[in-house]
Structure formats: C-alpha cells, structure tokens
C-alpha cells in the first residue's frame, strides 16, 4: 500500500514537472514550491542530526566542552542580519568562515588546480611501443594546453608568431573541448530523461519490462 501510493505520488509529480514543457501551470508551480520547502526542511533535519546535535548539543550537555559555546555564539550572530541596527554583527561569523576557508583553500587549490595539472601535463610524449595516435595525442595535450592558455592570456595582444598563432591554435583546441563536453552533457541529460521515462512506463504503468 505504502509503495503503491508512493508510486502514484511520484508519477504525479514527475508529470507535473513535465507539464512545464507545454506551459507554466498551477500544478507545476505547486511542485516547484513543494520541492523548495521539502529540501530546505530536509536540510534543517540533516544539519541538526549530523552537525548540531552530535557536535554541539551533546558535548555541551555532557559538560565537558564549554569552549564550543564560542562557535555557537558566533553562529548565532548570523541572526542579527534580521535586526537592521545590529546587522553588522553578522559579518563576524561570515569573516570567520571566509578567512579560515580562504586560508585552508589556498594551498589546496595551488596543489589540485595548478601543481597537479602542471605535473600531469609533463607526461613523456613518446615511449617505446607507444602507438602513433597516443604520441599524437600527447603532443596535442602538451601544445594544446599551452595554446589554450595563450588564448586566455589577455595581457598581451594576440599578434605575432607566439601570441597570434598560439591563440589561433588555442581556440581550435577549446572548440574541440567544448564540443566534446557539450556532447557528454547531452548524453548525461538524455540518460536522466530515459530514467524518468522508464519509471513512468515501467514502474508506474508496467508497459515495459
């Protein structure tokens, strides 16, 4: 019974969202508002369950970690945003998270987005027994990365042999990459659509296996 009602409700809301393809309508709007309310409500429940209760309330009730009152009071300052005369106090928790987050993020970004990428770009172009298309691919990888970087370098005009030719090759590489990424994204979305159609025709209506 529970599963059957759930199936019908899920099918109703699936169709409610697809009804937007025709035009915006009250059923779609209801589904849209419900998803906002449910996801925010779910977020509150999960935040309480996995963060506030075990990390703050329980240690405070146990009386062994009073220092946790500092982040709790700092967090409560967020609410001052609703009181215009003291709204500036909400900058304190934002500053704490912003500053520490930026500080922690700096070396990690340097490592993941810069050093690791440079390291991976310095792969050997040729090794014995390597097929020709891999050698060609490695050349495209190295010179393509450089050319695309030149294209994104706007401090110099894109003229001359290095910047002019480099940026022209760069835009070709970027277009190849964008095309591939677009194709990949289309495939991902289509497979999601197939999943929903399978739900409607299979799980709900039992028209397909």
């Amino acid at each position: 019974m529970y599963e059957t009602i759930g199936l019908w409700v899920a099918a109703f809301f699936t169709l409610a969202i697809y009804s937007f393809l025709y035009k915006e309508n009250p059923i779609y709007r209801l589904a849209e508002h419900l998803v906002v309310g449910i996801s925010a409500g779910y977020g509150i429940a999960i935040t309480w369950e996995i963060t506030l209760e075990p990390r703050l309330i329980q240690p405070l009730l146990a009386g062994d970690n009073w220092v946790l009152l500092i982040p709790a009071l700092l967090g409560l300052l967020y609410i001052t945003r609703f009181i215009p005369s003291i709204a500036w106090l909400s900058r304190y928790p934002i500053a704490f998270l912003m500053g520490t987050g930026m500080g922690i993020g700096f070396p990690l970004t340097m490592k993941a987005s810069v050093l690791r990428q440079l390291e991976a770009a310095m792969a050997p172009v040729y090794a014995s027994g390597m097929p020709w298309f891999e050698v060609l691919g490695n050349l495209v990888l190295i010179f393509g990365t450089l050319a695309a970087l030149i294209y994104f370098f706007f401090s110099k005009p894109h003229k001359g042999l290095f910047f002019g030719t480099g940026s022209k090759i760069g835009i070709w590489v970027i277009m190849l990459g964008f095309g591939a990424t677009f194709g990949f994204t289309v495939m991902g979305r289509i497979s999601l659509l197939i999943g929903r159609v399978q739900f409607l025709l299979g799980d709900w209506l039992h028209l397909i296996e």
């Binding site: 691919g137 590489v173 591939a180």
Partner: peptide
Amino acid sequence: WILRYPNLAAKRAIMLGVGFGIL
C-alpha cells in the same frame, strides 16, 4: 581520443586559469 587529448588539453587550460583566479 577527442575526450582524452584535445578535450583534456582545453579543460586543463581552463582549470589552470580557474585555479589562478581562485588563488
């Protein structure tokens, strides 16, 4: 081949740019 080489080259250049931007 397109996914592994030219696509990766473009993505790597973008990622490097984004990385420097974040820093």
